[in-house]
Amino acid sequence: MRAFTYERASSPAQAAAAVAGTKGAMFIAGGTNLLDLMKLEIATPAHLVDVQDIGLGDIEETDEGGLRIGALVTNTALAADMRVRKDYAVLSRAIVAGASGQLRNKATTAGNLMQRTRCPYFYDANMPCNKRAPGSGCAAMEGFSRQHAVVGTSDKCIATYPGDMAVALRVLDAAVETVMPDGKTRSIPIADFHRLPGDEPQVDNVLQKGELVTAVTLPKPVGGRHFYHKVRDRRSYAFALVSVAAVLHDDGTGRVAFGGVAHKPWRVEEAEALLPEGAAAVVERAFAGARPTGQNRFKIALAERTLAGVMTEARS
């Protein structure tokens, strides 16, 4: 691990200013992704700003009848919150489908959103990777690409966003609240938070340097039945090959987002409008622009079967 200096911030504004004003500075929350990357020297911050003392650890009800989830709320606390379990079950389900009990006790809402890809070449400093070393090439395209994205890819990068929580947040139309180093705040719809790789795969999301995530807000409950089905190589403690987050209503309408298939949670509103016609119609539309490799083409069929399974369960 490269040497770094360390400080604990005492307020969101101070944390944002500290990261913006210090060369090579980064926030650290639970540390479960950043320290992993620092040990491999894929992340090499010169200064860490620990945000654990800045508040933001609570889940509050909003005036609009939804919830505001503080950025520091742990994955365990969020999944266990009775309001979330009752009204936003897809979110609880997605969280507990990810990582392990130990990791979820440390992982924070903001850190989870910000987690980096699990592309094995991104983790291997001996291999070309445009996300880790812009311009060096992409080892995955000619390499093992079974885990990689099938849709929304670019000629520069075919990595996936690996997280589960954000896929549920996408079907729930959540928004990410932030504070800038100059004190200004903004609210970013979750649909716009993560980027597609395009020509700049090194940029995962739209946050600016020093911009601190303060909360994630959920609109008022949408009703329906909530599902998160995750398909992976082992039954627990593994990242998704494909996941489906869905909220389905008795009349056959609903919302659906896919995980493990793109550089961001993948939801196509025109596709989910086809839910009454069945899973095949939805997947055909949602993956219309897909450019799979020979090794990961199966993910499209898997997405259809996983969604079909969810729809069968919803009718039972």
Binding site: Y6, I28, G30, G31, T32, L35, D36, K39, L48, D50, Q52, T76, S100, G101, Q102, L103, N105, K106
Partner: peptide
């Protein structure tokens, strides 16, 4: 593993189990 993948380093902090390999002591 030193990377959060095996659980051998599990300890209990303030009543909750965590992977001690993915946490800085100063935190």
């Amino acid at each position: 593993c030193d990377h959060g993948q095996c659980g051998a380093c599990t300890v209990i902090v303030n009543g909750q189990r965590i992977n001690s390999c993915l946490s800085l002591a100063l935190m």
